[in-house]
Amino acid sequence: MSMYPDSQDFEQLRRVLALKRHEQPPPGYFHNFSREVIARIRAGDRAESSNVLARLFWDAPWLQRLWAALETKPVIAGAVGVACCAVLLVSIASFDGNADPNTAQSVAPQAMEASLGFTDHSSRGSFFEPAALADFQLTNRFAGASSQGSLFPVQPVNFIRGN
């Protein structure tokens, strides 16, 4: 015989406890339950994939230390700024030094026009073409430069009328 009587002494208690089986969640609760679980799993997966990049870049300890140092010490922030400018200047200078002058001459006007939005040479005249400047009286202040090979394929313009 067992040391712990199983049911006989507790029959009435067991009946009362069985009443708890009648406690039920609101109607329809289980219809949505699995859907919510699956939605939370999907949401968790999405959040995790976006966190990978954040962890890679932002949560990197060296980056956090650098950022903290920049925030707390203006001297370091200034030094980093100066270093960035220096790197920029050096890279510009080295580009100028290495660049082929002929290439530079042909590339620069195109680059300037492109930056101004006048890239389509074939369909319409360039802003720097004489046809586009018919109304302006032109003065050749840069004649010398043009004879040496100007950056621009047209003559420079003086925009003051009536001279």
Partner: peptide
């Protein structure tokens, strides 16, 4: 925050016995 008892509880033999 208890769930409601369903209507069958009143016909439950346990409750009737109680």
């Amino acid at each position: 925050s208890l769930d409601n008892l369903d209507f069958q509880v009143e016909h439950d033999p346990a409750f009737v016995a109680l």
